[in-house]
Design a protein around this nucleic acid. Structure first.
Length: 649
RNA sequence: GCUGUUGUAGCUCAGUGGUAGAGCACUUCCUUGGUAAGGAAGAGGUCGCGAGUUCAAUCCUCGCCAACAGCUCCA
């Protein structure tokens, strides 16, 4: 007998070899119908797998991540079964579940396009209706290898080559058997709604030197209605796409004539961006930063010294030559080398440190054309950059202060769902990095400790460090769930050495400062993009390019509207007049769609009383008040928005 | 950069082997209207760019450019 411990602490006994499904049924046959996966001793498992030892045990229904992952993983096998039937000779790479759905990478003898997805879906549904059991079988490495070598399947044999004998399992649904760790649903019948979403290329094993396989993405649900809901949700998310909103709200534009990935900021976008810059500038001033300004180009040698040229030279805009070809300059791809030169302007004392040089520095990087994406990935962008030069004993404190700034800014802008990622070296591929192990270890532990002392919940990613040092990155998701790095804080022992930066210590000796690179927004471009998607264009009041618009009932009141607008602008409220020759209903509609926070309607009544009739975006009519009262009200709201965030921090 | 899809008016899109259409936006006129689209008229396009096939190409073929999805990359 084996003892099974449930989450509520209760313990029951079962025969050895009892499956998770049987346990679910023993608790309640009705419950068992909804259960999709189980966690046994902290490992997610299929319901059909026998349990051989005492275990802690938890069942998962649809809402659990574990259940969805199992469901989608089985769905990918179901798709493979259909593909195997429809495309004889097809070979399979890997087919995992992902955050929303699943994919399978295949090498098909004939091309598979979006047009084929419907018939694959159809076949999947037919197969699912037969409710085939999914069976698990342990095999030896030899047996596994033989199965695929006879088929001439280079992909699966390569995968098996990396596995340990004794840990290998095959899963079978219908005519399809796959090398797979599981877990899976007990049978395919639970899959009731299927949508194959897209086809794309993907390199085998994620290496661009390998063959490109066809990746088919899909998502499935236990109910048709859930699929419909999902598709509606996707449509809604697309409406929040910053590229769409940027166009609708006239914030930015890309011109083919200017060039790929080179955004033009339109007046409203520029206004928004300037407010963000002004806000950060004032926060940084409070924290002892000094603004500096550096040019957009620098001698190639500058980047050879920094090490950036060796690493990224070939992926940069190519050098600009002087007319006599005597000298080469690069468009500035980062600001750090310039700031290092500012440090070198004069001898520094330990008393001067930390020094904090900040700049809204525009940089240019020749990103791969396929990588460009709205404002989130561009070829010319402005970093809210700063470089801090400190003594080694100041490093941790300085780092923690930067974390404070980042968190404060995220708070003000209500980015609560960020992930803090500690980006460390790749443990294996040391070639990618410069500098000594000793310095790397110091830098990495400084970040880990500072984050821990700040109580930040972090995830650790290896191989995500910059080539000169580890990072603490703040990742935020866009409307469609794609993750973007916004804020970043990096520790660097390398550039100070490469630029031979020194300070005189209290021992009268020269010492090496440590450098912190940091950018709370990351770049203004990407930050505005993510902000747009988070707010759906309804910016916080203090940030909105236009805060209020005055709508005269008819042209007779245009003069009064101008007067109101002037009054409010004099009271720091960004106000326009909509004097279009249209009915009031029309003007309300236009300006609601522009996401203007306050609509101020003025007609005969208001003109006589010196008032405005207030309408709040998305909330409708709020009645009348005097101009002065409205101005006071708005100014109070703006102040509260900023104070509230400060208080939370 | 790679694989695939797309490219028609400022925007959103329809359409055809015989050189183009809608709605919105724009201009003018009428209207002066009280809380999410008032009416009429007008103007606007080398159908992404370049070649090829054809009597004839916006439509078919090829190349390039750009956008989109994914992969790879991201100082």
């Amino acid at each position: 007998m084996i003892k099974i411990t449930f989450p509520d602490g209760s313990v029951r006994e079962y025969k050895k070899g009892t499956t998770a499904m049987q346990i679910a049924e023993s608790i309640s046959p009705r419950l068992a119908q909804e259960v999709l996966a189980a966690t046994v001793n902290d490992k997610v498992t299929g319901l059909q797998v026998p349990i051989e030892e005492d275990s802690t045990f938890k069942l998962h229904k649809w809402d659990d991540r574990e259940a969805k992952q199992t469901f989608w993983h089985t769905s990918s096998h179901l798709m493979a079964e259909a593909l195997q039937e429809l495309y004889p000779g097809i070979k399979f790479g890997i087919g995992p579940s992902i955050e929303s759905g699943f994919y399978y990478d295949v090498d098909s003898p004939e091309p598979i396009t979006e047009a084929d997805l419907e018939r694959i879906e159809k076949r999947m549904l037919e197969l699912a209706r037969t409710d085939e059991p999914v069976e698990c079988r342990s095999v030896t490495k030899r047996e596994a290898m033989d199965t695929y070598t006879t088929k001439g399947d280079q992909y699966k044999t390569e995968l098996i080559g990396d596995l340990e004998d004794g840990t290998i399992t095959f899963y079978t649904n219908g005519a399809f058997t796959d090398l797979c760790r599981g877990p899976h649903l007990p049978s395919t019948g639970a899959i009731k709604a299927i949508k194959l979403t897209s086809v794309a290329g993907a390199y085998w094993r994620g290496n661009e030197k390998n063959k490109m396989l066809t990746r088919i993405y899909g998502i499935t649900f236990p109910k048709k209605s859930m699929l419909d809901e999902y598709l509606v949700m996707l449509e809604e998310a697309k409406k929040r796409d910053h590229r769409k909103l940027g166009k609708e709200l006239e914030l930015f534009h890309f011109s083919q004539r200017v060039g790929q990935g080179l955004p033009l900021w339109l007046p409203k976008g520029a206004a928004l961006r300037e407010r963000l810059e002004g806000f950060l500038r004032s926060v940084q001033k409070e924290h002892g930063y000094q603004q500096v300004i550096t040019p957009h180009i620098g001698m190639k040698d500058l980047y050879v010294t920094s090490g950036h040229y060796a690493k990224y030279g070939k992926d940069s805009f190519q050098p600009i030559h002087t007319p006599d070809e005597g000298e080469e300059f690069l468009l500035k791809p980062m600001n750090c080398p310039h700031h290092c030169e500012i440090y070198r302007v004069k001898p520094r004392s330990y008393r001067d440190l930390p020094l904090r040089f900040a700049e809204f520095g525009t940089v240019y990087r020749y990103e791969q054309s396929g990588e460009l994406h709205g404002l989130t990935r561009v070829r010319g962008f402005t970093q809210d950059d700063a470089h801090l030069f400190c003594r080694p004993d100041q490093l941790k404190e300085e780092f923690k202060k930067v974390i404070d700034i980042v968190l404060y800014i995220f708070n003000v802008l209500k980015f609560n769902d960020y992930t803090a990622q500690v980006s460390l070296r790749d443990k294996v591929d040391r070639e990618k990095y410069i500098g000594t192990d000793e310095n790397w270890n110091k830098a990495e532990s400084a970040i880990i400790e500072a984050a821990a002392e700040k109580g930040l919940k972090t995830i650790v990613e290896y191989g995500e460090a910059a080539f000169y040092g580890p990072k603490l990155d703040f990742m935020v998701k866009d409307a469609l769930g794609r993750s973007w790095q916004l804020g970043t804080i990096q520790v660097d022992y390398n550039l100070p050495e490469r630029f031979d930066l020194t300070y005189k210590g209290d021992d009268d000796q020269l010492h090496r400062p440590v450098m912190i690179h940091r950018a709370p927004f990351g770049s203004l471009e990407r930050f505005v993009a993510v902000l747009l998607e988070h707010t759906a264009g309804k910016f916080p009041l203090w940030l909105a390019p236009d805060q209020a618009v005055v709508l005269p009932i008819s042209e007779k009141y245009n003069d009064y509207a101008e007067k109101v607008s002037k009054f409010l602008n004099n009271h720091d409220i960004r106000t326009q007049v909509d004097d279009l020759n249209e009915k009031i209903g029309r003007k309300i509609r236009d300006n609601e769609l522009k996401r203007i926070p306050f609509l101020l309607i003025v007609g005969e009544k208001e003109q006589e009383a010196g008032e405005i009739a207030l309408r709040v975006q998305g909330e409708g009519d709020k009645g009348s008040m005097t101009m002065a009262d409205f101005a006071a009200y708005v100014n109070k709201l703006v102040a509260e928005e900023l104070d509230a965030a400060r208080a939370v921090n």
